[in-house]
Design a protein around this nucleic acid. Structure first.
Lengths: 329, 329
DNA sequence: CCCGATTTTGATATCGGTAACAACAGAATT
DNA sequence: AATTCTGTTGTTACCGATATCAAAATCGGG
């Protein structure tokens, strides 16, 4: 930068101004400086800038696992909006582990990120403490927590699950089973279960522990879960899989075993991915605002950081979802 | 840091040493400093550290699109290895556009990343120039380019495509069609086509332009492509889809139209994802070392950055792939 | 027990910018 | 014409760490 300043015959301060607040510099200076910048091929040093101004254009994002098609839509939304404002994303995986998450938060804080986005809504007390102390804005994304850290942009897992279960009930299914990922350290799964149970109650169905299943990730887990429930409760007539991979796995297993869907058993899913629309029968599911969550998260974070919009502190954005009725129910 | 130093009654330099080169500090000092660090809850400022030492623990990664299950495995490999060495990943999407890529490279350079990982192997001349000038290590990931920028960790798209086409030929298929994504600005597609054509030649089949198809992304594109080739060349007996989404889309379309697979038409895919194993018929495909690519990329980059392993400059790691024979062929 | 070698610690400059305020010129006000 | 205001540019200090080299402490050997 010094070189640019010398070449343009101005002070470094003027160069800095041309680059950051062009309005405050006269036409003539601006051109001289920009010319020098071009000639030298000068690249500003963001590290120095952030250090000096105590402002950072980096946002830290922690997702449970990067290779999950669900998060990628949100990441895309985030990334696209942030990029437009010259912000960058630092991404890390917590592997569904709150301690790992805490570690990553520490790393991001020491990188002095301007904001944090957390997909999980379960954190260690130390993590909460560190975030509070840092004072940077945070958005939680994966659920609507009881005690938000700061801002929240999400849909309600409970409400979505409730809506789908009610939908199945209204379609006339009497024995609706529910499958989700293991719910330890996963309040999304827990809330989905709550929604299911609340809907059953509303429908006047009796909950049956044999029809509430938990399993791991992957298509194989979906296959396993549908086989399991068909065996233990032969009269089951619908299976609501709280996860699109589980649902797809369940469908493939039904096809293999020649269980007609929805004739023998109806299938419903959580989250709308391309796959569910293209299999036959196409699968009834919930459309969740994954991309929007990313977009809104970015916007609200930028408002806080750039405009200092302190009135947004603690705001909760509960985005809409939709039940998509298809052939599988 | 100053606070810590005062509290421990030492100089900031000693604090810095305790944190970065504990071996060079006496037992006693180390404990005093660590105690003070804990008491104050001190978080080192990475920005300041990087600026001062001119070393960065951030790696920039540019992928064409984040929401592509193919890249996520590589990202995971990268991320896991980097994390172990305390490095962070900055991720951005180029949207398959070299100009956008150049822009992002500039941004990353101004963030003073310690290294760059590019999935694309096509770059603007300015991008190449900037990278050269910066002197930081770079790994290209998506293909093995004719003129590497620096290091390469990849498999050969051409060889993989050749291998699968030969495999189909050896299985006895006589009319093998080929479908890929649009090949403009996409040398992966181009190389896959080359491999296909080379194999046809080797097999003594005549290439037929009606059997070389290009299309967009998504399951619908796969459906469209199989319908198109069946109509224009009814005697086609195999379709090699250079992309796992295309292959899945093609299979679903076959199921819908009751074209038996592989009886009426065989299907082969590129890339091994869980889905292809679980559909019926399961789909013959190529297993590519996606995760390994990430892992190796991270390792080689770290060697360059931490150990200054200059002999690795320009090295090319050509990773192995595998043909997975399944029910669809 | 002293001297040079080695290890440990500290003082200072610096990394590349920006904040804060000072200096100055020309325009507007009185 | 003197005064105030406004807008532009420069000066200086500092952001929070590390590199470098000097100073102090420790050590081993004659």
């Amino acid at each position: 930068m010094r070189d640019v300043a010398v070449r343009a015959g101005v002070s470094t301060m003027t160069v800095s101004r041309v680059l950051n607040e062009p309005g405050k510099v006269s036409e003539e200076m601006r051109e001289r400086v920009l010319k020098a910048v071009r000639e030298i091929g000068y690249l500003p040093n963001h590290l120095a800038g952030s250090l000096s101004s105590n402002r950072s254009t980096t946002i830290g994002l922690i997702v449970p696992s990067i290779d999950n098609s669900i998060y990628t839509q949100t990441v895309k939304g985030l990334s696209e909006v942030l990029k437009r404002s010259g912000f960058q994303l630092m991404i890390a995986e917590s592997g569904y582990d709150p301690n790992e998450e805490e570690e990553l938060i520490t790393v991001f804080l020491s990188h002095r990120v301007g904001g944090l986005v957390l997909h999980s809504t379960e954190h260690t007390p130390q993590a909460v403490e560190k975030i509070r102390k840092s004072g940077i804005p945070v958005v939680e994304n994966g659920n609507i927590p009881k005690e938000p850290l700061d801002m929240v942009v999400s849909y309600s897992n409970r409400d979505a699950s409730y809506a789908m279960t009610m939908h199945l009930g209204r379609l006339g299914y009497r024995k609706i089973a529910f499958a989700s990922l293991y719910s330890v350290h996963n309040d999304r799964s827990q809330d989905r279960l709550k929604g299911y149970l609340a809907a059953l109650k509303q429908l006047g169905h009796d909950p049956d522990p044999r029809m509430v299943l938990e399993t791991g990730r992957g298509l194989a887990a979906g296959a396993e879960v549908v086989a399991r429930v068909m065996q233990s409760v032969p009269e089951v007539d619908a299976l609501f899989c709280a996860g699109e991979v589980l649902a797809a796995g369940a469908l493939f297993e039904c096809q293999r075993r020649n269980w007609s869907v929805p004739g023998r058993i109806a299938l419903a899913s959580f989250d709308d991915v391309d796959l569910l629309r293209h299999v036959s029968p196409s699968i009834t599911t919930l459309r969740l605002p994954r991309y929007d969550i990313g977009e809104r998260t970015a916007r609200i974070l930028l408002s806080r950081i750039i405009d200092g919009a302190d009135h947004l502190r603690g705001s909760i954005v509960d985005l809409k979802f939709e039940v998509i009725q298809r052939e599988s129910t």
